[in-house]
Amino acid sequence: MKTRRLVLLGSIVLVCLVLITVQSRGRSSGAGDVVAVITTPIQTLLARVNRTAFGLWATYLDWKNVRAENRRLRDENQRLRVDALQIGETVDENRRLRRLLVLRDRLPLDTLTGEIIAREWGGWVRSLTVNRGRNDNIMRLTAVIGPDGLIGRVVDVRPGAAIVQVLTDPASTVGAHVVRTRTSGIVEGEARGTMRFKYMARDGAGILVGDLIVSAGHGGLFPRGVPIGRVIAIDDRGSALFHYAALAPAVDFGRIDEVLLVTGDTAHDIAAHFPVDG
């Protein structure tokens, strides 16, 4: 009995170590693909069920308020409220999709729209799962943007889905600059779910709270000029070589439902297509 247990524990450890070692040596994970084939349709279904369930819950709460407000008109009011909620939700969805489509049509880039089907928000990894994958010719390191700014990059591609590492992921780094002063630096994600702009102290004396940080476009990974965030605090480290600025993200990663995946050449400055005053 004891031997059987030890063999089981040893097998688990061995299988995991083999899996990790194979991936760390740059070989694609077949196990990941196999699991993804099963999990992607489930994730898609769950994302829909989740949204529907929360929509129904919100409808129920409104229904309770209406009933308390006017008992005599309860039935009529309920129907109207439910209708209004449905219309409001549709209008909201239409507005989001229209903004995305307007952006897609105006951008001088080849893009593909995608829907978020899952979010990983545990702190170790901050990622979104998009319903576009290998079947849509999505490649690793594809840039992902939204109407408000930069979202992240694709770090893993599965047959029907792709994992997007968002900018607040602790492993995320993006070359960026301050629009007003042109100070260059790097935007890094932090484990607490925030972002910071790291810059050379001698170049960043003029950075102020409220300054807009955009992608630098170096390296050909991200297009130039995509908003990343605004400076909310400056961490002046005296005589240190690098100073840091805390950023408020341009994109609300927790609420985004649709994204654009940049499938073609990214060598363009697209700053003019994003809001700079918001």
């Binding site: 688990i12 995991c16 170590l17 899996l19 990941g32 770090v155």
Partner: peptide, 15 residues
């Protein structure tokens, strides 16, 4: 597999 991290890390620790 879902989170996109190294496949095997959570399998090892949770196991």
């Amino acid at each position: 597999a879902v989170s996109g991290g190294l496949v095997g890390v959570q399998a090892l620790t949770k196991g």
